[in-house]
Design a binder for these strands. Sequence first.
DNA 1: TCTGGGGTCCTAGGACCC
DNA 2: TCTGGGGTCCTAGGACCC
Length: 391
Amino acid sequence: MIVHLDGDAFFASVEQAATARLRGKAVAVGGLRRGIIASASYEARRCGVYTPMPTSRALKVCPHLILVPGDFEKYEHFSRMMFSYFYDFTPEVEITGIDEGYADMGGNHRVSAERAAEKIRRGIVQSLKITVSEGVAANKLVAQIASKSCKPYGLTHVAAGQEARFLDPLDVGWLPGVGPKAVVAFRQAGLRLIGDVAQAPHSCLRLLVGRGAETLSEHARGIDLRPVVATREAAKSYGQQETFDEDTVDAVYVRRILRLMTDRQMERMRNDDVCARTVSLHLRYTDMVEVSRSESLLEPTRLADDFYGVVEHLLLRAWDRRVRLRMVRVAFSNLYRGYPVVDLFHETEGRNKKDRLQTLVAEVQARYGTSSLMRGHQFLLNNKDGESATD
DNA sequence: TCTGGGGTCCTAGGACCC
DNA sequence: TCTGGGGTCCTAGGACCC
């Protein structure tokens, strides 16, 4: 059996646990200036505050709301403590977010999954002063929906074979991947409940969600073929965005911000030993209209210098309205593990090319191993003629 | 002073190749 | 006076998740 654990109003609850005077009060974590509510305590929710509501509106509907800026180090600390309770029962743990994760209790014969979940729940509330909700079911999908359906501080066990009884009466919006837009489309197609989707012909679902029809139908029938505990996959992109304090027309300022963002992302990529070939730039105008432009280089790199010019060119191409900008985002994708040999070659010292090449080959093998070299560069190591290939 | 920041995945059209 | 069919890559946009 799988246990899905989900922190209740996590950020706000952590703030209340850490600061006694916030307990029992309407508390929200969110941006003070032009931000949104990232998490609202249940007291705040009773007052009409929800995520992701603009902070300014939250203060209008709930004037006594206590607004707290986010402290992610604190949340990560609580997160680690929270998940440590899983490991008392099983090493088979998959953490899917700062406040939620799965544990496979299948290998534990001393205690049932339900008993384990109950102990975890009580242990967390006693030691951390935050509550969590848990779902226990035969697969991840049902466990996840179960935990969300019993918030706050709930525990729902869906026995094997009872999946349809549990899922059928729920609104389609409970299914992961079915958001507000899809809910409207489903309703127009006469599908309101998960049970309706479970019965719908695949041809009908295909019109609504395309290639996802098969999986969606399985999910609606309580079937989830995903592996119980997956190892975390490597990131597919690195990005950063910033909403300005004031909307701006100052291109010099925007370019400076973009340079700083590029620098920061290159640093992250260096730490993870990856390079990117594609950079994309997203703009949000004052009127919330968004545009994006992207460009791929011939070779992956993590040299900020290689990207500055491209990013500035993308800015010129994307910013084609005479309208103030609200937000910019830069993201790097098409990631490759390792480092381009060509760039290392430029940095390698030696009397002549051949000398530099030999030094480089030895260094690369020592530092990265042949297997970590990127596609398209391995010939450099294997081919005696490699020297000419670097020209 | 309406509307954050970090991501993933899918689609659709066009270029290009065989 | 007609014009296939498969594939990949690139780009722009959008839905969705936490």
